[in-house]
Design a protein around this nucleic acid. Structure first.
Lengths: 182, 182
DNA sequence: GAAAATGCGGAGAGTTGACTTCGGTTACAA
DNA sequence: TTGTAACCGAAGTCAACTCTCCGCATTTTC
């Protein structure tokens, strides 16, 4: 692979992350413009728009998974769990919007994105299990519902440009529901 | 207004609710087909697609507000609050998707929809206040964060066709966070 | 330093969807 | 019953967007 090609691919991915982050239904033109390349170049690297969206989504999911894995090796499992939860809610809102655009556009998510999503879910599961083991999260809470709550909280926070204080108070409510009954 | 015109308008609204409920980005053609009228008829009643979406959304929001008001006159404020919360989460998933499509399409929501949304929020606020008065919901929870939680839970439930049992377990977590510390 | 191969960019083909036009039809009043 | 005004639907316009073709530039290799 030629050096300029690899370079362009990276530039396109970065630009796509930025553009789709702001509006997941932006046109491919917009991505090309921001990346400073022609439209054809974008389509050469990512034959369809769906594949481009998927690449961006996969990248974001993997980044989150890595953060979860890093936190999992922390010595305070409870803190790690709640910290990751908060981080996802405040930062990853965009990712979910992209995932939805992808599903809406291409029907089903591609193999890579699916695998990345499963990886993230698994990493989050480890975090949850550890937090439950040390008594920071109630034991009767299963991964499916906690994960749903994570996604919901993220999307609720995105929906209307929630102010940080309101978001934090909302998370307080969520966390109080997750803690073991004292 | 001629009788057939009023009739058609109603048929179009019903069809639009159905079509946009399944896929908010459906074409106007699809709505016309389901309503059994020509495309021009749809555009005569709703000059732009945005207005059609807004009409559907407004209708749904008002329906929800009416349900909230009905429940508010119940004699068990706590039960009324949690029942409404659950109902919104299980039923209104679609409405949020429509609202999002509207915002994505038209930029800002129209006047009618905005007013209907405010009405719903206010009705929900009454429900919350009553529930707090009788001690069914903790007093330090404000309307903004509880409303954000409502929206988030709804959207989390929509995101991935959540199974009913998982959804209920998620709501258990949310409700435990909302109850006063025992 | 030049040939060969590979990547690049802009113009355009093809499709999709919002919105309009116009001839024919139907509801309502006299 | 009949005139007319409003309404209806099919076909058409127009803009936007995804994806392709082809001449040109750049990198690589000897």
């Amino acid at each position: 692979m030629r050096a300029d090609a690899r370079d362009n691919r990276l530039r396109i991915l970065t630009a796509a992350d930025e553009v789709f982050g702001q509006s997941p239904q932006a046109s491919t033109d917009a991505v090309a413009k921001l990346a400073g390349v022609g439209i054809a170049t974008v389509f050469r690297h990512f034959p369809t728009k769906t594949e481009l969206l998927e690449a961006v989504l996969t990248q974001r999911l993997e980044r989150l998974r890595d953060q979860a894995l890093t936190l999992a090796s922390s010595d305070n499992a409870g803190r790690a769990f709640y910290m990751f939860f908060s981080r996802v809610v405040s930062e990853s809102a965009v990712k979910l919007a992209i995932g939805e655009a992808l599903i809406a556009a291409g029907g089903a998510a591609g193999e890579d994105a699916r695998k990345a999503a499963a990886g993230l879910r698994e990493a989050f599961g480890s975090l949850l299990a550890e937090a439950q083991r040390v008594g920071a999260v109630r034991r009767d809470a299963g991964l499916p519902e906690v994960y749903a709550l994570l996604i919901g909280a993220s999307r609720g926070a995105t929906a209307r440009h929630l102010e940080p204080e309101v978001r934090d108070r909302m998370l307080t409510l969520v966390y109080d529901g997750l803690r073991p009954a004292s």
